[in-house]
Computed example of a mutant assay.
Amino acid sequence: MSYTGPDFDPPQPRRSPLRRPLTVAIAALVPGALLGWGVYAAVGGPDGGGGGADRAAGERTSQAPSSDAAPSAPGDAKAPTGSSPSPTATARKPSASASKSAPAAASGPLRGKVVVIDPGHNPGNFRHTAEINRKVNVGTHWKECDTTGTATDAGWPEAKFTLDVAHRLRTLLEKQGATVKLTQDDDRSYGPCVDERARIGNEARADAAISIHADGSGAGNRGFHVILPGTVHDGAADTRAIVAPSAELGERVAGNFVRATGSAPSNYVGGGTGLVTRTDLGGLNLSTVPKVFIECGNMRDGADAALLTSGAWRQKAAQGMSEGIVSFLRG
């Protein structure tokens, strides 16, 4: 997730507030490239924000990633900057991705379950800097509506990455019988703002919600991490009822993500657990349903970027998230 987005032309077309210990146990070693890194498996079986430094802006040459195995395609800001609070509504293109989705399968383990997928940022955000810089109330404080997201050094934007993974994840979950809703599908000019992203999940009465991102930390910082909501009870924010189920959801997603992708937990946040608790993200603070963010890797590290731009790896990432969500929803 980015907090100061790059200026480029996009390609065309532990849970410390909890009283119980983490339930993620070290269960296996990822062979080969991980060279002995301990990895952990989620409790149960398979079936937004980041913590990195601000991204450096600059003109970059676009480079299209691989898209093998891709299905057909149809965040929160960090440091508050920009305009004063405004009631201006987020502009939309004629669409309704937040309220419509493909019909759920007639049967499957997730029949009757609703999952909301939040693809971080929006490919059009960079054209609407005034709108995304306006402040919204996230309960504990005021924050920017959204950000542009980060990009690889070659210029492939996070917003394109998150949409691609969201499409793959939606396909997998619908095959399991779930009703899936996206907060945006590149069907609006910018946004939605972080408060609306949370509201979409709340109004859908989602059984689980996940916000997909990629980090923009410094080179050498590698790996994924899952962000869990901390306990917040301030203004419009009250996470007390979702802290425990969100932690369980995050643990299951993290464990299955390791198994599916072979990626290790972050080496720069989370103490090697792949789990980080935060209380400053509006998408989590304002949620009333179990929700987590996942930073799938660091776009500004060459090794991680090679994974993130691989269609085959993105399919594995979606598979890991799907297995974690199915495991959580099946109990």
Rank of each mutant, 00 (worst) to 15 (best):
Asn285Ile: 01
Val114Pro: 02
Leu329Ser: 14
Thr88Lys: 13
Ala237Asn: 03
Val226Phe: 00
Ala77Gly: 15
Asp76Ala: 15
Ala70Gln: 14
Arg127Ala: 15
Asn267Thr: 07
His141Leu: 06
Gly324Trp: 07
Leu308Cys: 10
Tyr40Pro: 07
Thr88Asp: 11
Pro245Ile: 06
Ala96Ser: 12
Val24Thr: 08
Val226Trp: 00
Cys193Ala: 12
Asn298Tyr: 01
Ala106Asp: 08
Thr171Tyr: 12
Ala159Lys: 11
Pro245Tyr: 05
Ala206Lys: 12
Asp164Glu: 11
Thr147Glu: 04
Ala264Pro: 06
Gly270Arg: 09
Leu329Pro: 15
Arg188Lys: 01
Trp37Met: 06
Trp156His: 10
Leu182Asp: 07
His141Val: 04
Tyr40Thr: 02
Pro31Cys: 03
Thr179Pro: 05
Ser62Glu: 11
Ala106Gly: 10
Val289Trp: 06
Lys175Pro: 09
Pro265Asp: 10
Gly230Tyr: 03
Cys296Asp: 14
Gly149Asn: 04
Thr183Cys: 04
Leu307Ala: 06
Asn133Val: 07
Pro65Leu: 00
Gly139Phe: 01
Asp195Val: 08
Pro245Cys: 10
Ala89Asp: 09
Ile242Thr: 03
Thr288Asn: 02
Thr183Pro: 10
Ser62Pro: 13
His121Trp: 03
Pro65Thr: 00
Arg300Ala: 14
Ala237Gly: 03
Ala104Cys: 06
Val115Asp: 13
Lys160Val: 13
Gly235Leu: 03
Thr239Cys: 10
Arg240Thr: 14
Pro6Arg: 06
Glu158Gln: 13
Gly5Glu: 05
Thr288Gly: 01
Pro123Gln: 09
Ala219Thr: 11
Phe257Val: 12
Ile26Pro: 03
Pro6Met: 07
Gly255Leu: 12
Pro265Leu: 01
Glu174Asn: 15
Arg252Asp: 09
Thr171Leu: 10
Met321Thr: 07
Phe161Glu: 11
Lys181Trp: 13
Glu323Ala: 02
Ile210Cys: 13
Lys100Asp: 02
Asp9Ser: 12
Ser83His: 04
Ala204Arg: 07
Thr231Cys: 08
Thr162Ser: 15
Val289Met: 04
Ser16Gly: 10
Gly191Ser: 09
Arg14Asp: 14
Gly36Leu: 01
Lys181Gln: 12
Val43Gly: 04
Glu158Pro: 11
Ser101Tyr: 01
Thr152Gln: 12
Gly82Ile: 01
Ser97Met: 01
Val136Ile: 02
Glu174Met: 14
Gly149Cys: 03
Val276Gly: 13
Ala219Arg: 11
Asp215Ala: 13
Pro119His: 05
Asp301Glu: 07
Val292Asn: 09
Ala79Pro: 07
Ala53Cys: 04
Pro157Leu: 15
Gly51Ala: 15
Ala312Thr: 13
Ile210Asp: 14
Ala41Glu: 07
His167Ile: 00
Ala154Asp: 15
Arg134Met: 02
Ala247Arg: 10
Ala57Pro: 05
Arg60Pro: 03
Val226Lys: 00
Thr261Asn: 06
Gly112Leu: 01
Thr231Gln: 08
Glu174Gly: 15
Gln184Ala: 06
Arg188Thr: 07
Cys145Phe: 09
Thr81His: 09
Ala178Lys: 02
Lys135Phe: 00
Ala42Gly: 14
Ala102Thr: 09
Thr261Met: 02
Gly120Asp: 08
Thr239Tyr: 09
Gly250Arg: 02
Val226Tyr: 00
